[in-house]
Amino acid sequence: MPPVPAHIAGITRPVDRLMTYYVLKAAMTLIAFPVTVLVLYFRYRTMRYQFSEEGLRMSWGILFRHEVVLNYGRIQDIHLRSNAVERALGLARIEIQTASGSSSSVMTLEGLTDHDKMRDFLYSRMRGASEAKHDSEAGLAGILHEVAQELRAVRMALEKRS
């Protein structure tokens, strides 16, 4: 596995524009605006990302803390979604699915500067995105084959000596 590129590993917080979107989103709830905007504000303030070699971690929440950790290899499919308001702000959501039972997404990455690059990075780490695994398995079969040939040679040598 190549190391995580610096522009991905460096991401720990969502961009400021996400809060702008959250305010607009809360405004859509009309009467519930004060409550919704507070909830979304805390979500924005506490949202943290961490992209490591094997997987990613996302956490948010103060009263109700959430922390999701998942391996890149376990990603089933990636949805890149955006509505017109998000696009006007240059935002998009990346929804990640795993094979767990729930039909809603396991993790939703929000407020990333370059969501296309992030999606491509996640895709490149998905199972089946590269031929790496295939090579290692074919290689393993080859090694087993060679070990068998070595053993055969040992047996031949023994039989010749006796």
């Binding site: 089933q76 499919d77 990636i78 890149l80 199972r127 089946g128 995105a129």
Partner: peptide, 22 residues
């Protein structure tokens, strides 16, 4: 040869990427 991608929608745009391995 390894995956598929589906793009749809106007107001709400969606792009799904899935590898054949899954």
């Amino acid at each position: 040869d390894r995956s598929l991608r589906i793009r749809s929608g106007i107001w709400s745009v969606e792009e799904i990427t899935m590898t054949f391995a899954n």
